[in-house]
């Protein structure tokens, strides 16, 4: 991975500034920042609605996403995340980094890596619902407007991450 690439990654400070400008543009146009987890919530809520409409409307978590007049997927964050997928794909193709593979540490099997990724995904989404936002919606966007909760969340993520990363070294190294 550290070998020289034909299309190297960009300087992180340049990318960061670019994302910061996107946040500003997003505030200026819509009054809201970027996001990610909200799109997953809308997606899940709209599927639950088609499977079990009454039950989903009764649920306080999902009803929030489907009670509007508009279709739940006709939403700012949903379209933004579809864009993220497209943008990532474009850059991946241009940089010749699009490849079907499993990214993992050398000491772990692909199957175990996928199981851990799935489990981590459950944990992360659950946590992001508890905190009312993820790295994009809460840390990046909330951090920019100096929301107290956003900054507390951000530091807590690092504390949580560092407190287990060295305990599960074998997963990644």
């Amino acid at each position: 991975m550290s070998t020289k690439q034909k299309y190297p990654y960009w300087n992180p400070y340049i990318v960061g500034t670019g994302i910061g400008i996107l946040i500003i543009i997003s505030f200026v146009t819509t009054g809201r920042g970027l996001g990610a987890i909200g799109a997953f919530s809308s997606f899940v809520a709209s599927i639950m609605k088609t499977i079990a409409p009454e039950r989903t409307l009764m649920n306080p978590v999902f009803s929030e996403y489907i009670s509007g007049i508009e279709h739940p997927l006709k939403d700012w964050v949903v379209f933004e995340i579809i864009g993220v997928c497209i943008g990532g794909l474009i850059s991946g193709l241009l940089s010749k980094r699009f490849k079907f593979e499993v990214i993992k540490g050398p000491q772990i099997s692909s199957v175990n890596r996928l199981i851990l990724a799935f489990a981590g995904g459950i944990l992360m989404a659950f946590a992001a619902k508890v905190t009312r936002g993820c790295t994009s919606g809460l840390a990046l966007s909330g951090g920019s407007v100096l929301s107290l909760g956003a900054w507390l969340f951000m530091f807590s993520v690092f504390i949580g991450g560092y407190s287990i990363s060295f305990l599960i070294k074998k997963v990644w190294n």
């Binding site: 990724a117 981590g120 944990l123 992360m124 993820c134 969340f153 993520v157 504390i159 991450g161 599960i168």
Partner: peptide, 18 residues
């Protein structure tokens, strides 16, 4: 507390939602 839990998940995934 949710942030700490999110951090655990992040390290397991190596990725965040976005």
């Amino acid at each position: 507390l949710g942030g700490i839990l999110f951090g655990f998940g992040f390290v397991l995934c190596g990725l965040c939602p976005g």
